[in-house]
Amino acid sequence: MKNFVIAAVSGALLVISGHGIAANIEAGKKKAAEVCAACHGPDGNSPAPAFPKIAGQHASYVEKSLNEYKSGARKDPIMAGMAAALSKEDIENLAAYFATQSGLKTKY
């Protein structure tokens, strides 16, 4: 019973905080085509070894990374510029989209 109460309260807090609301994967796909595809590929499987593959990454990792580029906590002039124009919703949608993609292994 104690575990049930803890789970119920945790779930309620997630919903209240907004993290329990599903991101829009289709919106993330569209934004990825506009912002990310040139370097990371349309599905996050970068065709070039200079750019990391982000397909299949955990949504929380992609979201954290983009927020850190946007805030300046993580330094990269190109990514900072890309992330600066993204809204909170854009970041959540992109993270959800890339998390649903298959991370393909490519030989360079």
Rank of each mutant, 00 (worst) to 15 (best):
I91G: 03
A73L: 05
K53D: 13
D76E: 10
S87W: 15
I54P: 12
S60D: 15
V62N: 12
R74K: 11
K88A: 10
A85R: 10
A59R: 08
G81V: 06
K64R: 12
I91F: 05
N67K: 10
A83D: 07
K88S: 08
D76P: 01
M79I: 07
A55S: 15
K88V: 12
A73E: 14
G56Q: 13
M79E: 02
G72I: 07
L94E: 03
H58S: 13
A73D: 14
A85M: 09
R74P: 02
E89P: 00
K70E: 07
K75W: 00
I91Y: 06
S65Q: 14
E63D: 12
L66M: 13
Q57C: 03
I78D: 06
H58M: 11
A55L: 12
S87G: 05
G81N: 09
A55F: 15
I78Q: 07
L86V: 08
V62W: 09
P77I: 08
A59P: 06
N67L: 10
K75R: 04
I54L: 11
A55G: 14
E92I: 00
K53M: 10
E92R: 13
E89R: 07
S87D: 05
L86Y: 14
R74G: 02
E63K: 09
A59C: 04
I78W: 03
A80G: 15
M79A: 04
A80I: 10
G56P: 11
V62Q: 08
A84S: 13
D90F: 07
A83T: 08
D90E: 03
G56V: 14
A84R: 08
G72A: 01
K88G: 07
L86N: 08
P77M: 05
A80W: 00
K70G: 00
A83I: 07
G56T: 15
E92G: 06
A84M: 10
H58R: 11
A80K: 08
V62F: 11
K88W: 03
L66R: 03
G72P: 03
G81S: 06
N67A: 04
